[in-house]
């Protein structure tokens, strides 16, 4: 089944965002953002620093409370949910990959413990199985199995980021938020990671919202693209369409700024 067919089958959006606005005092974090995200879809959000893409992501993931707007996940109003439900959602159905792996990892706990934490949080109580899954996921993000008992503080930046991704995906979430996930990865691992993410999206029907300024990443990964500037969405559409035929002046600038190798 191709992506288009799948989207045709599920006509209900997984996540619907309407008129989302977040202000920091008189300043605008993001303003009047609306979009639908369907199951299995990868949405890229690009824009320069300070364009509000990280603010938007943290509002969506529930780390900040937006001032205005509605977020509906799987038919449920996220902002009206009790904190218990929202936190349960964010450790089962959702995952959040931080830009800085040290924000998303427990630095005093071994790699295996980091990957296993989400499993244990949802009730896994069999050490052998937890360890088996941790080993499996470490392998999938190219961390050698003999590093399972090392702490993340002994890892390189790239390894920490891969570990964070493993830790987040181990419970097979349906919706993954990613904030500049490929920042610290070398090119080969970045490619493998993008492969892995594409595979997961296909196999698990995973939906992803990925914030980045690396246009190569969104070109490879994202089905749809949203371009933000000064807290507002200036252009959105299919990735190839936006990148190949940018309409807005800022998008044109962004696309033409990419260095060609």
């Amino acid at each position: 089944m191709t992506m288009m067919e799948r989207m045709a089958v599920t006509d209900q959006p997984l996540l619907r965002v309407e008129g989302l606005t977040k202000r920091y005092g008189p300043r605008i974090g993001c303003a009047d953002v609306s979009f639908d995200l369907y199951p299995g879809e990868v949405l890229g959000i690009v824009g320069e620093s300070g364009s509000g893409k990280s603010t938007l992501l943290s509002c969506l993931a529930g780390h900040q409370r937006p001032d205005l707007g509605r977020i509906t996940y799987d038919g449920r109003d996220v902002l009206a949910m009790s904190e218990t439900d929202r936190r349960r959602l964010s450790r089962t159905d959702w995952a959040y990959v931080h830009q800085n792996p040290r924000d998303g990892l427990r630095m005093g706990v071994s790699a295996g413990g980091n990957v296993g934490e989400r499993l244990m949080a949802v009730g896994a109580r069999h050490y052998g199985e937890i360890r088996g899954k941790a080993l499996d996921w470490l392998g999938r993000v190219e961390i050698a199995p003999d590093r399972i008992d090392d702490r993340p503080s002994a890892f390189s930046g790239g390894m920490q980021q891969r570990l964070q991704i493993a830790r987040n995906l181990v419970t097979s979430p349906r919706l993954v938020f990613m904030d500049e996930p490929t920042g610290g990865l070398d090119v080969s691992v970045q490619a493998r990671l993008l492969d892995l993410l594409r595979g997961l999206v296909r196999d698990l029907g995973l939906s992803v919202i990925i914030v980045t300024h690396d246009l190569a990443v969104v070109r490879l990964l994202a089905h749809r693209l949203m371009v933000m500037k000064s807290g507002r969405v200036v252009e959105q559409g299919l990735t190839d369409q936006v990148l190949d035929d940018p309409q807005h002046g800022y998008t044109q600038l962004l696309v033409s700024s990419v260095l060609q190798v």
Binding site: V109, G113, G116, E117, R125, Y127, R131, I148, D149
Partner: peptide, 22 residues
């Protein structure tokens, strides 16, 4: 306190996991 309130005790098992791993 929030973890007690919401019964989020996965972390307690992380400690035991670390014990066994070590």
């Amino acid at each position: 306190r929030k973890m007690h309130e919401l019964e989020e005790y996965g972390l307690m098992h992380v400690k035991l996991y670390e014990d066994i791993a070590r």
